[in-house]
């Protein structure tokens, strides 16, 4: 790009639009986080459902996998941060939203462990919907907005089902909130990477 080329008014506006678009294209996320957590929570919910319905046990609490999944999540987040050479305007806000979510999930797990409430599944799905809906809204990503709403609908529905069907609803929530948006993000990311 020449350093001092004078531009016409039209060229200036075109340049502004093209650079803003270039910056926006850098925003495209790899979809790793939503794919990982969407797959994991959907799988754990379905496995819990299957164990109840078909009367078998796998010998350990399947939800412990979510603690293991923290390892790749932390590693890939760290690696992405190292490679990234810009910061988005909404990044700090997003980090606070998802940190609050993680803290609430740990708090809720502790609460469930201490009190064994009847409708704990509903509480989880209600909390799943919050960061998903906010992220979808701020980043104008409709699949996550819809995913957040589905979490809340499933949360209400789970008050009228037993625990086993609640697990099915949880699988629907996780697939809608993270797995499907994660697949969409991944496809977009790979498409853009190959351009």
């Amino acid at each position: 790009m020449p350093e001092e080329k004078k531009l016409s008014e039209k060229e200036s506006l075109e340049l502004i639009a093209s650079m803003i678009n270039k910056a926006k294209n850098s925003y495209i996320e790899s979809g790793f986080g939503p794919l990982l957590w969407g797959t994991l929570i959907t799988f754990c919910s379905l496995m819990t459902y299957a164990q109840i319905i078909f009367h078998f046990t796998i010998g350990f609490d399947i939800w412990l996998l979510s603690l293991l999944a923290l390892i790749p999540q932390i590693y890939f987040s760290w690696r992405a941060k190292q490679q990234k050479n810009f910061t988005r305007h909404d990044e700090t806000a997003m980090n606070y939203v998802w940190s609050t979510f993680v803290i609430c999930i740990f708090f809720l797990s502790f609460y469930n462990y201490k009190t064994q409430p009847e409708y704990s599944v509903a509480l989880y799905m209600m909390i799943y919907g919050v960061p998903t809906f906010i992220t979808g809204g701020i980043r104008k990503f409709l699949p996550m907005i819809i995913g957040g709403v589905i979490c809340w609908v499933c949360s209400i529905a789970s008050f009228y089902t037993g625990f086993a069907n609640g697990m099915l609803l949880m699988a629907i929530s996780a697939a809608s909130a993270w797995l499907i948006p994660g697949i969409i993000l991944r496809k977009r990311y790979l498409k853009l990477k190959n351009v």
Binding site: E4, K5, K6, L7, L15, I20, A23, F86, T87, E91
Partner: peptide, 20 residues
């Protein structure tokens, strides 16, 4: 601002919080 490279830099920086 009415110079190609400086305008390009400013347009990029307006779209992000900060950039290397």
């Amino acid at each position: 601002l009415h110079s190609q490279l400086r305008l390009a830099v400013m347009s990029l920086l307006i779209a992000v919080k900060e950039a290397e």
